[in-house]
Design a protein around this nucleic acid. Structure first.
Lengths: 187, 187
DNA sequence: CGAGTGATGTCATTGACTGACATCACCGAT
DNA sequence: ATCGGTGATGTCAGTCAATGACATCACTCG
């Protein structure tokens, strides 16, 4: 595989998280990340498109999982019911073990506008994918777009609440509470 | 004022729009924008924080307008009613005259991931401001965040529909139709 | 008319990112 | 075991965005 040690991408991810948390995103150079991972800066860019992306590798997995859940919802489910299925499926990715990592990562992202931008475009991509999923179910375009936006809004709000919640609150509970709030909002 | 001609910022904005539309964002250098505007690249960065921001100057105005509308809603309005007021107020910024400019600008932004990111963070900032506006009205935090996200979702979906709609459809009509769709979504 | 102010130009530098090309570890075929 | 191919990495040179320091010019006010 690699020239020396395997899993250069993994080492780069860890090095980046550590340095971003320690010195901040702006205070960290790609060369430093690469150094800590035992490679050159050129190799960093072979694994990640840019300095931000190193924190977001793997975000396709969550998206694929939610889209699959959406596709798996009963054919006679309403658009919002199907979206609910997808939103609740996100809980599979955020168990209590990953909570601490999620907190650290989220803290870094929230404190850096550039990283926040990247996070937002990931969410927008998720929205697009879910919209397409609804279209595949035969939902009208306008409704699909709106339902997807709303679903992602629920996820965002829930995730942030979960991050800030006590350690024993599962994210699924937060998601359900937020969905309930949503129902009450328009009633 | 300026060393030579006044309104350097305005000339830079126009030059940027023209070049981005013509050669694409990536194919345009800041030096080229500055050249066309008759200034140096250094001056570009005195007027705009970075190469993206030149397309987003003035976005605070929309936000302030919507927040003001939110604050002006009747004290006994529900959170969603208040948000509706704010969302409908956005129509004041997008009359038929600005439609063509909005289309051109939107086309450039949508075709460039970096610009899309910037657009998204502007929307997120708007969401935050509206959330705060609801908090100021005494709305509970969870509800406020969700209502703001939902309201911005309505605006996003509507704006995109308006951009793609026939020339004689006012954005206020689209906004109202989307709000109606939202009401039907959870019913 | 001269000092002050604000916007601009000039220069040097850092750091993200890319293309071209050389190099090395490993694997499979002979 | 050796050779050639393949893929990941290193090296080098270059572009461009972004910033700090300092000089300069136009305009205004006293």
């Amino acid at each position: 595989m690699g020239r020396w040690e395997p899993d250069a991408a993994g080492r780069l991810r860890e090095a980046a998280m550590a340095l971003y948390a320690e010195r901040g995103y702006d205070g960290t150079t790609v060369a430093e990340i690469a150094d800590r991972a035992g490679v050159t800066a050129r190799t960093f860019f072979r694994h990640f498109a840019d300095k931000r992306e190193v924190l977001f590798a793997g975000s396709e997995l969550l998206q694929e999982h939610m889209v699959a859940a959406l596709a798996g919802a009963p054919a006679d489910a309403t658009p919002m019911e199907a979206m609910t299925t997808a939103v609740l499926a996100s809980a599979d990715f955020f168990d209590d073990i990953r909570r601490e990592y999620s907190r650290r990562r989220s803290a870094v992202i929230m404190s850096t506008p550039e990283l926040r931008e990247r996070e937002l475009i990931k969410m927008a991509t998720l929205t697009t994918a879910l919209t397409q999923g609804l279209l595949d179910r035969g939902v009208a375009p306008d409704i699909a777009a709106l339902a997807a936006e709303t679903g992602v809004a629920v996820f965002k709000v829930s995730f942030e609440r979960w991050i800030n919640a006590a350690d024993d609150v599962p994210i699924s509970d937060v998601l359900q509470a937020t969905l309930k709030n949503l129902a009450g909002l328009t009633a």
